[in-house]
Design a protein around this nucleic acid. Structure first.
Length: 430
RNA sequence: GUGGGUGUAGCUCAGUCGGUAGAGCACCUGGUUGUGGUCCAGGGGGCCGCGGGUUCAAGUCCCGUCACUCACCCCA
């Protein structure tokens, strides 16, 4: 008995069969269109990168536990990219001399992380990355927030289906040190505590706070700060607020695009000021849909030139969950619009000639690759999603005619060969 | 890495007290030599995840293992 290899894809990766691929193509095609409407240009890069570029900035978890690494034949340590930001930082740094900043770039790479798969998380995901490099203006934040709303809106989402929660790490730092009295040394740990504030029960949070060295009083004050919303801003020093792009956004006509939320922190180490996460408002998807933030000096690994930026990554897994939950997934496209069927095997050549005229008219057309009886082919054409067939029979063909039949209404018409494309088009546009 | 759930036909699943492997859908053929979706008749398909144990006998009970899945950790 021979041993066969498994047909299932590698754990945490997915095959995209044509129906699913069709849905994805439509969804992402729409997103590309919206993004490009803002003037963003698409780029791409290698899936393999030097492992070093992830070890400094991506955060310990990704580098130590989630990175797929390998050594090439020359002994170089490589990694499958777990995210796109270090790659694009490398590209920007390497080409900074010839770019006119600020630049708007986007990409749609597949990224790999070695993790345990579950809802909203796999080992290979496709992530749309959108970034603006070379500007620290608050207009960048505003444009990114507008774009997020337009992207989700373009997919059919209404404003009540999602919320953009935004924070500024500098505002939070100030609140923690100036209002709660957290020391500089405690700050990273308190950030981590804030990050899980919503997930843990109060006792668990209190225990963590005590471990960090916060008093009971400070812990209560921390809770007040995180729940304060925009009222928190009144308690912060003027120079901190003056330096915050997010405060500028909140004072602009774009304020309605976001909800200020001191609880948003995000794990990635390179964010330095604005951070945001987009949440599905339906309870089934409690995880953040996607998120991003601003960084003051992303390319420091590659160049002394300081290049700031802001951007976000939108993963396909959580996005598809969101669209499915809200009934926003498009239908897969049919295989073809029309099928040309020869009634007898000898008319196969004639059928191909007719099909060629339909294709020249832009009609997606197939001809059966193996001869079958007409009745069978009509059924197969219908199943393939064709809405029209062209029947090529001996008597018709001898007279220069074919029969065009609608698979929807069952009407059929005898027309000349030359008139077939127009007749099919009429049926398809009805 | 930790914990729970589930593995039977291509898909969804049933399988009682351990006693020869089932249904629906899908697929193929015929009824119908140039007209499909309905209907009728027939047919192909199974290492019951894998390995071991108990038993006269295991899809069923026990142990192990792998896979899938959900949650934790973390993150898109």
């Amino acid at each position: 008995m021979p041993e066969y290899l498994p047909t299932a894809p590698y754990r945490g990766t997915r095959d995209f069969l044509p129906p699913e691929m069709s849905v994805r193509t439509q969804v992402f095609g729409k997103l590309y269109e919206v993004i490009e409407r803002y003037g963003f240009l698409r780029y791409d890069g290698p899936i393999l990168e030097s492992a070093e570029i992830y070890e400094a900035k991506s955060g310990e978890e990704i580098a130590n536990q989630q990175l797929y690494t390998l050594t090439d034949r020359g002994g170089r340590r490589l990694a499958l990219r777990p995210e796109m930001t270090p790659s694009v930082a490398r590209m920007i740094a390497g080409n900074a001399g010839s770019l006119q900043f600020p630049v708007r770039w986007y990409s749609h790479p597949n990224c790999h992380r070695y993790e345990r798969p579950q809802r909203g998380r796999v080992r290979e995901h496709w992530q749309i990355n959108v970034d603006i490099f070379g500007s620290t203006s608050a207009s960048c934040e505003i444009e990114i927030f507008e774009l997020i709303h337009d992207m989700l809106g373009g997919l059919g989402a209404s404003e009540d289906m999602f919320v953009v929660r935004a924070n500024d790490r500098n505002l939070l730092s100030s609140a923690l040190t100036d209002v709660v009295g957290v020391t500089q040394e405690q700050l990273p740990e308190v950030f981590a505590l804030v990050d899980r504030w919503e997930k843990y029960e109060r006792e668990k949070l209190a225990a963590s706070a005590e471990e960090i060295g916060l008093s009971g009083n400070q812990f209560d004050k921390l809770g007040d700060v995180l729940a304060a919303g925009t009222a928190l801003l009144d308690e912060l020093p003027a120079h901190v607020k003056d330096g915050s792009n997010l405060v500028k956004v909140l004072g602009s006509s774009a304020a309605g695009l976001i909800r200020f939320d001191p609880m948003i922190v995000r794990g990635l180490a390179y964010y330095t000021s604005t951070v945001f996460e987009v949440f599905d408002t339906s309870p089934e998807n409690n995880r953040a849909l996607f998120g991003g933030g601003a960084y003051s000096d992303l390319a420091s690994l590659f160049t002394p030139q300081q290049i700031p930026g802001i951007g976000f990554g939108m993963g396909d897994v959580t996005l598809m969950d969101f669209l499915q939950t809200h009934g926003l997934l498009p239908q897969p496209r049919s295989e073809v619009d029309a099928v040309v069927i020869p009634v007898v095997e000898e008319l196969g050549d004639a059928a191909r000639q007719v099909a060629a005229t339909l294709r020249r008219a832009g009609i997606r057309t197939s001809v059966p690759l193996e001869y079958r009886k007409l009745g069978k082919e009509l059924g197969r054409a219908d199943k393939a999603g064709a809405r029209a067939v062209v029947i090529v029979g001996q008597e018709d063909w001898d007279a220069g005619n074919v029969t065009v039949r609608s698979l929807v209404t069952r009407e059929q018409r005898q027309v000349t060969v030359d008139a077939a494309p127009t007749t099919v088009t009429e049926l398809l546009t009805d």
